[in-house]
């Protein structure tokens, strides 16, 4: 028997296809988030660790389908703010908060709103790639369905679509059953993005997603973010000014004076923030003069 005859026809056909554009319609998931991107708005957001106030009075609109970049020096509360947005902050013992976070106008901290429901609608990609190492690539992508107890009849389609959207499909389609931990760092991070996208969230939060990646993988992730524009609201923390400039529509500059809580010094369209910001500190920061 020849090798060619062993391979199913469909597969050899698809392997000749160079580019597979993400299909326009979503694979249906029962019980999942409502379709489309959602606007996220912080109103007077404050955060404490124990008695220590680390973030004060953040007002920020992250418009639906756009990419918002959060920039600022280390320790000024960007990660904390991001974790306020999908209720991960409350997992830390002693953590407290104030203010409102509105997802399409509804406060995610309203009484009766469950954190699991919020996190299903607002996905998160972490600084360090964290695939589930014991699971296969396919199981990793589908992990969210199992965890959030969602039903999907077309799991194979969902796996393919999510991996395509994360820009990883072509590299892994022949080894979907090999363990997720065996991929390179950049591939692992894109697998984590695919895993988040498989739940079809309305918002995707990314905390320095490229800081552990090589330049090529970084570019792939940036391409992915670009392709998500319009479908998902993206909020990304980055220390890389070029990256913020390249991928974001809106930019917010966080800063914390010594022993003071972090605040948003300035926010606005990325082009303006990088060329003619109002605050001199913003200009200094985006031009790399401190931080």
């Amino acid at each position: 028997m020849t090798l060619a005859s062993e391979r199913p026809f469909a597969m050899s056909l698809s392997s000749t296809t160079i580019e597979e554009p993400p299909s326009a319609h979503r694979v249906p998931i029962v019980g999942g988030p409502p379709p489309g991107a959602a606007t996220l708005e912080a109103k007077g957001a404050c955060a404490w660790f124990g008695e220590r106030l680390v973030l004060e009075g953040v007002d920020l609109v992250m418009p639906a389908g756009q990419v918002t970049a959060l920039i600022g020096p280390s320790g000024c509360g960007k990660s904390t703010f991001l974790r306020l947005l999908n209720r991960m902050h409350e997992l830390i013992p002693g953590a407290a908060l104030d203010g409102e976070i509105l997802l399409d106008g509804e406060d995610i901290y309203a009484t009766g709103t469950r954190a699991q429901q919020v996190r299903m609608r607002i996905g998160m990609v972490f600084q360090k790639p964290n695939p589930f190492p014991a699971m296969s690539i396919r199981e990793n992508v589908l992990a969210g369905l199992k965890l959030a107890r969602l039903k999907c009849d077309a799991k194979d389609d969902l796996v393919e679509q999510s991996l395509i959207r994360a820009g990883l499909w072509k590299e892994v389609r022949d080894r979907l059953d090999s363990p997720g931990g065996a991929l390179s760092g950049g591939q692992q991070q894109r697998l984590c993005i695919a895993r988040s996208l498989a739940v079809q969230p309305n918002v995707l939060l990314m905390d320095e997603p490229c800081s552990a990646l090589d330049p090529t993988s970084t570019r792939r992730v940036e391409e992915t973010i670009d392709e998500l524009r319009g479908e998902v609201t993206v909020v990304i923390v980055t220390h890389n000014m070029q990256q913020a400039n390249r991928v974001s529509d809106i930019c917010a500059f966080f800063l914390a004076a010594e022993n003071q809580p972090g605040v948003v010094v300035e926010q606005g369209p990325t082009a303006k923030m990088f060329s003619t910001p109002e605050d001199p500190r913003t200009l200094d920061y985006v031009q790399g003069r401190f931080g």
Partner: peptide, 27 residues
């Protein structure tokens, strides 16, 4: 158990028990 994996499970909308089943017990 690596905290990153636990956070990943919770961030996907998992309950604490779901996180334990998919991350802590296999680990």
């Amino acid at each position: 158990t690596p905290p990153g994996e636990k956070e990943a499970a919770l961030a996907l909308g998992g309950t604490r028990w779901g996180m334990i089943r998919s991350v802590v017990l296999p680990y």
